[in-house]
Amino acid sequence: MPHLPYLADRAELTDASDLITMFGSDARSEAAARADRSRDLGNYLHFCRWRQIERLIGWLSSDRAIGTVH
C-alpha cells in the first residue's frame, strides 16, 4: 500500500490541483522537474515540498481507493 502524502499546508493541495489543471497527465512529471530544479539550486525545502506534491498528484490521480474505506 502506498504511503499517504504529508501535507504541510493547504497551499500544497492548491499547487497539486493547479498542476493537474495545467499539465493533465504530465502533472506528476512537472512536479518532479520542479523538485529536481530546486535540488540543483540547493534549495532542499522546496525540493522536499515538490516531491510531496508529486506524491500527492499520484494519490489524487489514482483510479482506486487508497487507505481505509468504510
Rank of each mutant, 00 (worst) to 15 (best):
A11M: 02
W50D: 10
A33E: 10
F47A: 03
D63G: 10
R49D: 14
I66L: 01
A11E: 08
I53R: 00
A11T: 00
L41V: 07
A11D: 08
D18N: 10
A32G: 13
F23R: 02
E30S: 05
D40K: 05
T21K: 08
C48F: 09
L4Y: 04
E30M: 12
S38A: 15
N43I: 00
Q52V: 08
I53F: 14
M22L: 12
E30I: 12
D15F: 09
C48Y: 13
W59G: 01
P5I: 04
Q52S: 13
Y6V: 09
L13F: 12
H70N: 03
L60D: 05
F23D: 13
T14S: 13
T14F: 09
A27E: 01
A65E: 01
Y44F: 10
A65I: 00
L56V: 02
E54M: 06
S38P: 09
R51M: 15
D36M: 10
L56A: 13
I66G: 00
E30V: 09
S61L: 10
H3G: 07
I57F: 07
G42K: 00
A16Q: 00
A31D: 07
R10S: 14
R39E: 15
M22V: 09
L56E: 04
T21Y: 12
R10I: 11
T14N: 05
R49H: 09
M1W: 08
L19E: 05
D36R: 06
R37P: 11
V69D: 01
R55F: 15
R39L: 12
A31N: 04
A65C: 02
D18H: 03
P5V: 08
I57T: 02
D18V: 03
P2S: 03
W59F: 12
G58D: 12
D26A: 03
L60R: 01
Y6A: 14
G58P: 12
D18C: 04
C48M: 06
R64D: 04
W59C: 01
W50C: 06
F23L: 09
Y44K: 01
I20C: 04
G42T: 01
T21W: 11
G67T: 02
S17I: 11
S17Q: 14
D63R: 13
R51A: 15
L19M: 05
D36P: 03
D63Y: 05
L4Q: 07
A8E: 09
A32S: 11
D63V: 06
A32Y: 11
D36T: 12
R55P: 15
A11G: 03
L13W: 07
A33V: 11
A35L: 15
A31C: 04
A11L: 12
H46T: 04
R10W: 09
T21C: 10
L13I: 02
D26Y: 12
I20H: 02
H3Q: 03
G58M: 05
C48I: 00
S25Y: 08
L13A: 04
I66Q: 00
I66N: 00
V69Q: 00
L45T: 05
G58S: 05
N43M: 12
A27T: 04
S62K: 02
C48D: 11
H3Y: 14
R51G: 14
R28E: 15
A32R: 13
L7M: 03
G42S: 09
A33I: 08
L19T: 01
R10C: 06
W59I: 00
W50H: 11
Y6L: 14
L60C: 14
Y6N: 15
Y6P: 08
H70Q: 02
